[in-house]
């Protein structure tokens, strides 16, 4: 019961942060709020027993992500211009999508059900066999590196590819193009 109340409290704060992000027009504040959102969601992950995920979210969401957002702000602009579009169409779209998703959750097993389809199957096998097979206490590490090592290799490759993409887009490796340079290249 206590867990339910903690969850609810965190949710109220999460929704308040999300609404603040929606309404704010100073992008510096938006960045800070996104950081707060990450920290709150890390707390929620702890109450949901996902300590590894909470660790990652706190390190990535509140740390690196904020730094990158701020460096983007210094390269672009810091105020969002007011939009002239009416918010009606987006509201209708999100309401319909949300209603569809909620309709989909109605058939789902209760939160925390130990016999839901997600709990039986391959996860139960991992929990039962990893102590004899691999003998490492942290099952998350075991599944990450050993049982699903191929998956993790793909993820590492994706991280590498994304980094290479960023370097191709904005790295200082190539001589920086200025307006004068373009003309020179065209004439030569």
């Amino acid at each position: 019961m206590l867990e339910t109340f903690i969850n609810l409290g965190l949710f109220v704060m999460l929704v308040a942060t999300a609404v603040a992000i929606t309404r704010m027009r100073r992008l510096f504040g938006v960045t800070m709020m996104a950081s707060v959102f990450s920290l709150l969601s890390a707390m929620l992950f702890v109450t949901l027993d996902a300590v590894d995920v909470a660790f990652t979210e706190a390190a990535v969401g509140a740390g690196i992500s904020t730094v990158l957002m701020l460096s983007t702000l210094t390269l672009t602009s810091r105020i969002e211009k007011p939009t002239t579009r009416s918010p009606l169409v987006p509201l209708v779209v999100t309401a319909i999508t949300g209603a569809a998703i909620i309709y989909g959750t109605l058939d789902m097993p209760n939160f925390g059900d130990a016999h839901s389809p997600a709990q039986v199957g391959v996860a139960a096998r991992y929990m039962a066999e990893s102590p004899t097979d691999i003998d490492i206490p942290n099952v998350v590490t075991v599944v990450l590196a050993s049982y699903r090592g191929f998956d993790t290799m793909g993820e590492t490759a994706v991280v590498f590819t994304a980094g290479a993409g960023v370097l191709m887009l904005i790295s200082g490796l190539r001589r920086r193009r200025r307006k004068g340079d373009d003309k020179k290249e065209e004439t030569s």
């Binding site: 925390g112 059900d113 709990q119 998350v140």
Partner: peptide, 10 residues
């Protein structure tokens, strides 16, 4: 993945 009364998988 949460189980009521469960703990972190370590």
């Amino acid at each position: 993945g949460k189980v009521t009364g469960g703990t972190a998988p370590i």
